[in-house]
Design a binder for these strands. Structure first.
Lengths: 219, 219
DNA sequence: AATAAATTTTAGATGAATCTAACTTTAGAT
DNA sequence: ATCTAAAGTTAGATTCATCTAAAATTTATT
């Protein structure tokens, strides 16, 4: 029960990496956490002793059930806080990540669950990433890219699939925000420029790339 | 910019102790933080080098302007979070302290100020302690002990002057909560048993001691 | 298969925050 | 005024998370 931040960050990183590969590599953890591999090796030994990971020298590692549940819990808190900051405190999408990196370590199940409750048990965060429930279960999101919508249809903006600050700021600039009602009027067959409007407003165009990175919920 | 938790906790403790005595003693800090005096001495040297305190060996220490402003900021955040937890997330008075001990270290002025805003720039927290404003200024609270109210008058419960969990739980039990309208019907001259009612409800009695520890705002 | 390249681990060091034990200074009691 | 108790400091050790440099292992290339 010491400085659990560090340990929690390792478990979160390992969980994320596990989604791509069964076995996780030392270097990938080091890169994700911006530290040296040697440091990671040290920590892996400790995590293995605590039975949070299963680790074989030179071979790679994976999370135990116990380790996974801690990792998932951190992700749950991170995403709930992000949504909270955007929905309740009116932060913009691109401003919340850093603050949530801190808030995710607050230890109080009661707090996490009440947050969940006042947000109405959300299934995904402002970036469209799924929020696991209190038991660590991810419901899969029904969100689809805007580019997959039919012409003349309407949907609700539920997230983005590109997390970079420039992109998020661009969305702010053109006036696309979480929860907005978005309508596709037409799509140019040649370059797939989308003519859209937000909340019944004025029509304007966005590129194919942007349309692919905006996630929406249809009906 | 390292693990600022520790340093922040020292500055907070020193600020609190400064309210009682001009010069703060090593042992008092040690007791407040539940660590050994030797440890405190070490830290005092570091704080002095950073110009956060003015320190003379064997003589005691006091905060510099810079140190004070960090200490006050932590207290501001602590109290804002406590109020947030009680008002917005429906926690009880006695449940929020520990969580606020963690939340007070979240670094984001923007977050702190928005919290302040959605709480409507409160002047005191659920325990009746004053909340400094963004410039570190404490407005003095107009709260008085319930025992100082006139008979037949009404006021709003604004805090407590005894912070202990048993007391707070007792208040929950008898149904006294922050923001309640409280009416004094009579006070027994012999033992100062107070006959009161909450929000126009049924009359009941509380002891002199309890009445002294409930803070209220009159009109 | 032999060797080079990349990855991972080991060994040894550092700084932060803590401890215990021993020493020093200040303050209180007679 | 002297002595003793309390308070405060120093010295040396420990644990945690990190580092660099060097050694070991695995993987890739010719």
């Amino acid at each position: 029960m010491k400085n659990s931040f560090t340990e929690e960050n390792y478990l979160k990183a390992i969980f994320k990496l596990s989604e791509k590969n069964e076995l996780v590599a030392t270097t990938d953890i080091a890169n994700m956490l911006n530290i040296r591999s040697a440091t990671v090796t040290d920590m892996l030994k400790k995590l293995a002793i605590k039975k949070l990971i299963r680790y074989e020298k030179y071979k790679g590692l994976y999370l135990t059930e116990k380790g996974r549940s801690i990792g998932v819990k951190i992700i749950r808190k991170h995403r709930l806080w992000e949504l909270f900051l955007v929905q309740k405190l009116k932060f913009k999408w691109d401003e919340v990540h850093e603050i949530a990196e801190q808030l995710e370590h607050i230890q109080s199940d009661e707090l996490t669950n009440r947050l969940d409750e006042i947000l109405d048990f959300p299934k995904s965060d402002p970036h469209g990433d799924p929020i696991p429930d209190k038991n660590g279960v991810f419901g899969k999101s029904r969100a689809i890219p805007l580019s997959d919508m039919k012409s003349k249809s309407t949907a609700i903006v539920s997230g983005v699939s590109e997390n970079n600050a420039t992109f998020l700021q661009y969305l702010d600039k053109i006036g696309v925000a979480l929860g907005d009602k978005i309508t596709i009027h037409s799509v140019e067959p040649y370059d797939q420029l989308h003519r859209i409007s937000i909340n019944q407003g004025k029509e304007f165009s966005i590129s194919k790339t942007v349309a692919q990175n905006i996630l929406v919920l249809v009906k």
